[in-house]
Computed example of a mutant assay.
Amino acid sequence: MTNNKGRLCGCRCGDTTAGGRFLPGHDAKIVPQLEADHGSMLDFWAWYEEAMKGQEPSKRC
């Protein structure tokens, strides 16, 4: 088991969580950021599928 204390927030705000992957509510920042970076979720998905071609999907816990 790993110690998750001091983990940076997954939204890349720079703040530190109390042990989770995100600060409360910060997980909701991901979709708008992907849309801003790629134009839309459909554009992001097309980019993702192209980037992942030929790679086995990784399992996340």
Rank of each mutant, 00 (worst) to 15 (best):
C61K: 14
D37Q: 15
C9H: 02
K29R: 02
G39K: 11
G54C: 12
H38R: 09
R12H: 04
G19L: 06
M52F: 03
C9K: 01
K29S: 08
T2G: 03
P57G: 06
S58K: 15
N4F: 10
G54E: 14
L42I: 11
M1T: 06
G14M: 04
I30D: 00
R60G: 15
R60E: 14
E50P: 15
A28Q: 07
T16G: 00
G54N: 13
G6L: 11
H38K: 14
W45M: 14
F44Q: 05
L42T: 14
G19W: 05
R21Y: 02
G10M: 00
K5Q: 00
D43I: 12
Y48C: 12
T17K: 11
M41H: 08
D27H: 09
P24F: 01
Y48V: 09
G20F: 03
W45V: 10
G14H: 04
E56P: 04
E49L: 12
G19N: 04
A18R: 02
G20E: 03
C9P: 01
V31F: 00
D27C: 02
P57N: 05
L23K: 08
H26T: 05
L8T: 06
M1R: 10
S40D: 11
M1K: 11
L42Y: 15
K59W: 05
N3D: 12
L42D: 15
F44L: 11
G10L: 03
A28N: 06
C11A: 08
L23H: 04
N4H: 10
L34F: 07
W47C: 09
I30N: 02
H26M: 02
G25K: 03
L23R: 09
P57T: 08
Q33F: 02
G10P: 05
Q55G: 13
R21F: 09
P57H: 14
S40Q: 07
E50G: 15
Q55N: 11
W47D: 14
E49Y: 11
A36Q: 11
C9A: 04
P24T: 02
C9Y: 04
G25N: 04
K29I: 00
W47N: 14
P32N: 09
Q55Y: 07
E50R: 15
P24C: 04
F44S: 13
L42C: 10
C61H: 15
K59H: 12
C61G: 15
R7V: 05
F44H: 07
M41P: 06
P32R: 00
P32Y: 01
G6C: 14
D27N: 00
E35L: 04
V31S: 13
W45R: 09
T17R: 01
E35F: 00
G14Q: 03
D43L: 15
L8P: 02
D37A: 13
R7P: 00
A51P: 11
A28T: 07
L34P: 07
M41N: 06
I30E: 02
W45C: 06
G20Q: 01
L42P: 12
M52Y: 09
F22I: 07
Q55T: 14
K59L: 03
E49D: 14
V31P: 07
K29N: 03
P57I: 07
